[in-house]
């Protein structure tokens, strides 16, 4: 193999390495506690993917009230976030879409206090705008002409979806199993899939790119979202202040505006 070949191969290899992205590292710019009462520095919040829109909005409120403090987010499936917190740390605050994954973190003795449920969410069927396939309930998801995407059973919304389908006694053969709830909404808004099961808040977040079909209470599953400050938090003051804002009437209003349900 001659020099040019080798350099081409090396270039290829280095590009290969670039292709292997890592998950976002928390910001390193946190400063230690400020002498005065004013909050400063940044806290990293690990939050369920379904909280993306309301938490970004609450963070705007937080920044407006605390100009020298900041919040950065790592959104993803709660299950993956729990694994990251246990294996790598890096989180100041954890907001999970279910109790199971919060318990995993709590069982490792990584929480400062017992977690608090701050909001709830219910399931909805997400379809294309105008509902072209005429889906009226979970039983329609069993139709062979309907391409359904479910979240994988490993992530909270996937587990809830299967609970709801079991309650409705419907067997669905999905075309794909998404790795988080946003991965269910995506193919439906792109038109590649006809329907999926997501949180009501995600249908709302999709705006006019998707529509929702409600699931009756007797088939639905109520998801409880707990949050707690991590013991090894590098900036517990900012983390706690953000948590207080989420729990405040102001924060709750943002969440309910996004389709969540007050606890």
């Amino acid at each position: 193999m001659n020099k040019q070949n080798i350099s081409a191969a090396l270039l290829a290899l280095s590009l290969l390495a670039v292709g292997c992205a890592t998950t976002g590292d928390p910001a390193d710019d946190r400063s230690s506690a400020h002498p005065e009462n004013e909050l400063s520095g940044s806290a990293t919040v690990f939050a369920a993917a379904s909280l993306t829109e309301p938490f970004n909005e609450i963070a705007e409120l937080f920044r407006a009230g605390n100009p020298s403090a900041d919040i950065s987010f790592n959104f993803g499936a709660s299950s993956g976030l729990a694994t990251q917190i246990i294996e790598q740390g890096g989180a100041d605050l954890f907001a999970s879409a279910d109790q199971v994954n919060m318990k995993k973190v709590a069982d490792e003795d990584l929480l400062q206090q017992a977690p608090r449920v701050f909001i709830r969410n219910r399931l909805e069927i997400v379809v294309a705008p105008g509902n072209p396939e005429g889906i009226t309930g979970l039983s329609d998801l069993a139709r062979t002409d309907v391409k359904v995407v479910l979240a994988a059973a490993q992530v909270p919304v996937g587990r809830y979806s299967r609970e709801a389908l079991a309650k409705a006694e419907v067997t669905v053969r999905p075309v794909s199993e998404a790795v988080d709830v946003k991965g269910v909404v995506g193919p439906v808004t792109l038109g590649e899939a006809d329907a999926g099961i997501v949180y009501a808040s995600d249908v709302k977040a999709a705006g006019d790119r998707a529509a929702g079909v409600p699931i009756p209470d007797n088939q639905n599953v109520l998801a409880e979202y707990p949050m707690g400050v991590i013991k090894s938090a590098s900036n517990p003051q900012v983390a706690r202040a953000f948590m207080d804002l989420v729990l405040s009437p102001q924060g709750r209003e943002v969440l309910t505006d996004h389709g969540f349900i007050a606890p």
């Binding site: 999905p174 075309v175 794909s176």
Partner: peptide, 11 residues
């Protein structure tokens, strides 16, 4: 990345 986006994820 391209696989999960284009082809989805079905065991």
């Amino acid at each position: 990345g391209a696989t999960i986006t284009f082809a989805g994820n079905l065991p």
